[in-house]
Each structure stands twice: as C-alpha cells, then as structure tokens.
Nucleic acid binder design. Structure first.
Length: 416
RNA sequence: GCGAACUUGGUGAAGUGGUUAACACUCCGGAUUGUGGCUCCGGCAUGCAAGGGUUCGAUCCCCUUAGUUCGCCCCA
C-alpha cells in the first residue's frame, strides 16, 4: 500500500502486456504492407511543438498537457498525441527532400491530464499513421482503407465509419462567416462553452454535446452548402472510392474534430460497444508549412490502443496468448537438479519451452508445478535415470510413459 | 474542472457502534505417497485506504485527503 502507480496510469503484465503487443504486431504488419515505415520520436518535445500544431486554444493545450521546466529552464511537454512530433521530425530532418510521398507510422505512449474513466487514461497508447506529400482523394481513400483493414484484421465488429469534409480554406472562411451570422442573435440560447466557441471557432459549436438536440443546431447552416466546387468534388471522389470498395460509412456533417490542424477530410471509427472513437483522423493541409517546412499536405489517423483492447476483450477476439510450456523436468535429488539444468539448457537451444523445479526433491510439489503450467511432456530424473542414462518421459496428451536415452530425448520430444 | 458510487488479508469476498473480523481459494508448515493433479493435521488481517473528529467505545457515524470505477466536458 506504500507506493502506487500514478493516477490514470496502468501496469501491463502477463496477459495484458501480451495483448498490447499482439495488437501492435497485427497493426504494424498491416501498415508495413501499405508501405509505411516506423518513426520513433522522443516521448517529450519542446512545448511549442504541440502548441503550434494542436492549437493554442484547444482543450489539449490549455488544460491537458503534462508540461514542465527542465533544469535548463526549457519548457517541455510529454507528448499528448503523435502527429506533432512526426511533423517536427519530418521537417527538421528535411525528409521532404527526396521525391515521392512519405509514409510513417508510430506506436507508443501518449499523455494527457484528464479525469480517468472508461477508455481514457492519463497515459495511454496510440498507434498512428501519417502520409505527407500529396493531396489526392485517392490517397484519402487509401488511408481510410488502411484503418478499415486494421479493424477487420483485428476482427472488430460493430464499428461505424463517420466521415465529413470541413472544406478547403475558402470553404471554411465562408462557412465560418455564415455560422457567426446565424448564431449572432441566438447566443443566449447556447451553453457557456458554445459562447466561447462562437469567437474562437464557431464550427466547434456543431460538435457540442449539450446543445446537440436543440433545433438551433439542427437548423444551423451546413458546411456542405458552403463548399467550393473543388472541395465538393474532392470529397465526392473519396465517397465514390468507398462506395466502389463497399466500405460502409455515414456522412456526418456535424463531425468537425477537436484538433485545430485538420482541414478537408475528417473521419472517425466509432464503436457501438461504448460509443467511443477507437480511431480518428483527417487531412491537414497546412501543418508542414506551419512548421516552416514546404507547402506539403498531410493526412493521418490514430488508434486508441487501450480502446481497441477493451473492445477485443469484450468481443473475445484475442487468440490464446498463454505461454505454452513444452517440457517440465522433475528431479528427485541434488545431483538430478544438475542433470535437469543441463537437459533444460539443451532443450531450450532447440526452441523448446522448459520449466523445472529448483527447490523440491520429492515428487508431489513438482507435479503440482507441472499441473500449473500444463506441459506437453514431463521428464523425470532420479538416481536410477542418472545412472542408466535412460530418462523417464511422460507424454501428457497420450498418457503414456516411456524410457528414453538421454541423447534421444530432443528428437523424441520434437516428435522424431 | 464538475458530479455519483465505491476502497475489508495474497485473491474473491461476508459482516457489525462493544470481548477471538465469517466463508472460500491461494499460500506456508507437517503427515503419507518413485508417479501427481488426493486425503488428513496445523498456520495465515492487533486490523477493515490514510489522517482527524463524534463516542465510554468505531472497520461500521461525520469531515478531510488519496485512490478506483462511472458519468459530464473533452478526447484515441
């Protein structure tokens, strides 16, 4: 009781750590097929990196970051999301210098100071994928497709793809103006947060959960009426791709997302299980430029790994991840322990998983150990075995016991 | 940041304003057994999240703090 983990953090051990690594394995294998390579960036960055990208006025930056001063009085922040660091790395290392589009993925812990609850922790893991270099609706479609593929590969059911476009620069300028005009004389009917949103980013009002049922929101102007022809055509091409590939989706015109860097396409995969987004992303036309890089568009998404794990547990989607022990060696006196050690060493060199007892010389506790790990074979070494060089090997499935010469044990256990 | 419920041993948990805090499992010690996953005997919370208060007396009532879980907000 003396020490406990920090609020909102988790220990992963035994089966939980295996589940996390299982998800990582499946997901990274798929994304590599799509041509992504891994980017490993620091867990912390200069605070400015996140302020610049995520948005000065965003909730993440204003109240959710783990920000601290190091001994050199530098303001550093534990990364609250993945994209900012990827962009920083991309620009800093001039990865735009070689031709072609660039695809990177990351997997690791993120930190946000929030009240922990279902599917949300202060330290949590994200898997994310990012592409820089092209603005093409086919690329948008492929990015969404890759996320969809990950979901299907993980066998996760009951996920809804919501998609929207918040338009290009001109579309959003016009729409923003129209929203301000529309809400101007209705401000007193909105919640306090929305009054703030009115000034900072009126599009956020549409994302408000408090006012979502009111007619004011339902009758508000829709972004789709303000899209430029280019933005409209772009979005329609994406939808056409999804239609052709028979990817189910719903266009949700209220979907605007909380991070400031998004432009044009935004999407979320929502789980029916808990109503939470397990994956979300979108396009960001100006992010690279805002890091003093070239004018290169980007697009990407992130998965909440713990949320994926929750759903997979709920739906029973994990394969058996228990360790499978091939052999338990029972040894009946001190000299036999040495023989057991030696045999274990040689069996493990053959990639066999071996357990033995280091303490007991009697049979019973060693059989107990054996029961717990449920091995395929049990080898018994006692005085008689040591002297004859012929060990007793029990096959626990066929329930037979055989005498096997020491030098034949490996081939016997490996099934000849 | 706001709100609600909860916090009893290694684990799951029962329980009460008043002498020894049920029960089960695990575990530990022992008996028996060169072939087990049994059986038998014995042991295992001086303490009921931490601190303070009310009371003759509190694990049980009150307050504070911490944590857990779940909502709101926001988000992956």
């Amino acid at each position: 009781m003396a020490y406990q983990k920090v609020k909102g953090t988790n220990d992963f051990y035994d089966l939980d750590s295996k589940k996390l690594r299982y998800i990582e394995g499946v997901v990274t294998n798929i994304i590599k097929d799509y041509g992504f390579s891994e980017m490993i960036t620091p867990i912390f960055e200069n605070t400015e990196v996140f302020v610049r990208s995520v948005g000065e006025a965003s909730d993440i930056v204003t109240k959710e970051m783990y920000t601290f001063l190091d001994k050199g009085e530098r303001s550093l922040t534990l990364r609250p999301e993945g994209t900012a660091a990827i962009v920083r790395c991309f620009v800093e290392n001039k990865l735009f210098g070689t031709p072609g589009i660039k695809k990177y993925y990351y997997f690791g812990p993120m930190f946000r100071y929030e009240r922990p609850q279902k599917g949300r922790f202060r330290e949590f893991h994200q898997f994310g994928a990012e592409i820089y270099g092209d603005a093409s609706p086919y690329l948008d479609a492929e990015v969404i497709l890759s996320a969809y593929r990950i979901l299907t590969e993980l066998k996760i059911k009951g996920v809804k793809l919501k998609i929207n476009t918040i338009g290009d620069f001109i579309s959003r300028e016009n729409y923003s103006k129209a929203l301000k005009e529309y809400f101007k004389d209705k401000l007193d009917k909105l919640c306090d947060d929305c009054k703030n949103r009115y000034n900072k980013n009126p599009m956020r009002i549409l994302d408000c959960k408090v006012d979502s049922d009111s007619d004011i929101l339902k009758n508000a102007p829709k972004i789709k009426d303000f899209l430029t022809d280019e933005a409209k055509a772009y979005f329609n091409t994406i939808l056409k791709c999804l239609d052709e590939l028979k990817i189910p989706y719903v266009v949700d015109s209220s979907l605007v997302r909380g991070l400031d860097y998004y432009t044009d396409t935004v999407f979320e995969f929502i789980s029916d299980f808990d109503g939470l987004a397990i994956c979300a992303g979108g396009r960001y036309a100006d992010l690279v430029k805002s890091f003093n890089g070239p004018d290169l568009p980007g697009i990407g998404y992130a998965f909440g790994v713990e949320r994926v794990k929750d759903i997979m547990e709920e739906e029973g989607l994990f394969p058996n991840l228990e360790r499978c022990v091939d052999v338990v060696i029972i040894s009946l006196d001190d000299d036999s322990k040495i023989s057991a050690l030696n045999l274990a060493y040689n069996l493990r060199k053959e990639k066999l998983s071996v357990e033995m007892d280091y303490k007991n010389n009697s049979l019973k506790p060693q059989f107990k150990l054996s029961d717990r790990v449920n091995p395929r074979f049990i080898v018994i070494i006692g005085e008689a075995e040591r002297e004859s060089g012929i060990y007793t090997v029990k096959d626990t499935i066929n329930k037979i016991e055989e005498k096997v010469k020491l030098d034949k044990i490996v081939s016997f256990i490996k099934g000849e």
